[in-house]
Write a protein that binds this DNA or RNA. Structure first.
Lengths: 186, 186
DNA sequence: GACTTATGCGTACAAACGTACATAACGCAA
DNA sequence: TTGCGTTATGTACGTTTGTACGCATAAGTC
């Protein structure tokens, strides 16, 4: 009954299915929040039958955790690539400024997902490893350019500035960010 | 059937009921998250009949918004009181350090609630005023002691440091915080 | 081709959900 | 006391939820 697009019969072989479900999960979380993320909505977004949900994932929490893990790995990767391009300390500082306000790929969608992740982890301590893994990678990237104590403060500053800029746009201008980074890293 | 503690008949006059429901809502959010906050659970936590929910609040979102509003007002008040005690710039700096790591009343519960709030606002832009109201008060408190640009950076730093300390305990020590605040405010 | 095994899915089910609404319980005027 | 208008509640309704599971269908083997 669920007439689909292509190939006549019901799709049967579909090796990327699990990855597609995870992708669709992030999409649903971004729009509906964790509280509105259900098996059925994700299944529809990923264009898979409902039965696939419980087949590929042990539970809804399992699904959420894997989705959030993928999110953090992608973001950490972007972060890492950005910092690997920097050669001098000044260039690294400029990358920090980029990240603080604007960010390469920090869309509203991604910010929303991150905030959902924070809330989720706060309430499910067993998923804390998702956060610590992410932070370890960020810290590593920063420590290639700055001493540990500075890296730590820059990390926190990025966190706060990103959230503030999201909640109250035009909070911190680019020039202001540059000054802050200079103060913290000197 | 719902046998209760006191006064024989079913409690009928109860002027603080609405406030108690809001309080109970925060309790439920802290434990179950927004996604697990339902009329029934809040009603049980506040020890009121289910009908009271739709009587006092137009909808579940209405309830959540009022609860979050109360949360931010309380926190902003604590913040304000702390800064009003400070007389000199150095004392104000020390308050910032207090807030960054440890915080007077920043329990895990409250931090969890704040993260739930962020996620909620990100997904419900019509409630953004809860955040802007909060920030205006914080900013005001900070600007009694620091110039606007410094206040802005301290505010963001407090945000980031608080979250980091919550996610990865022992992230920023007290001495480290002192150094950071000095750098940002000089 | 025929047969076996592992993979994937449609469907059903009990529980929990938000909300509406008839009606009960109250304070108060007379 | 009686009557009335307000306030509050119990309950019922139609949906939606997570999850389990029998069965259809594919791949693998000869």
């Amino acid at each position: 009954m669920t007439a689909e697009g292509s190939s006549g019969g019901n799709r049967r072989y579909d090796p990327d299915r699990k990855a597609r479900i995870i992708e669709a999960t992030l999409e649903v979380i971004a729009v509906q929040g964790v509280s509105g993320t259900t098996h059925r909505r994700v299944a529809e977004a990923a264009d898979v039958p409902l039965g696939s949900m419980t087949y590929h994932f042990a539970s809804l929490n399992d699904l959420l955790e894997q989705a959030f893990l993928k999110l953090t790995q992608e973001i950490a990767h972007h972060f890492d690539v950005a910092f690997q391009k920097a050669q001098t300390a000044d260039e690294a500082r400029e990358v920090v400024v980029d990240v603080m306000c604007g960010w390469y790929a920090m869309t509203d969608r991604k910010m929303t997902l991150i905030l959902e992740l924070y809330a989720y982890v706060a309430r499910n301590p067993e998923t804390r490893h998702v956060m610590t893994g992410w932070m370890a990678k960020s810290r590593e990237a920063l420590e290639r350019h700055f001493p540990p104590s500075v890296a730590s403060s820059l990390d926190a500053m990025i966190e706060g500035a990103t959230i503030h800029n999201f909640m109250y746009p035009d909070g911190i201008s680019r020039e202001a960010a540059r000054i802050i980074v200079a103060k913290l890293s000197m």
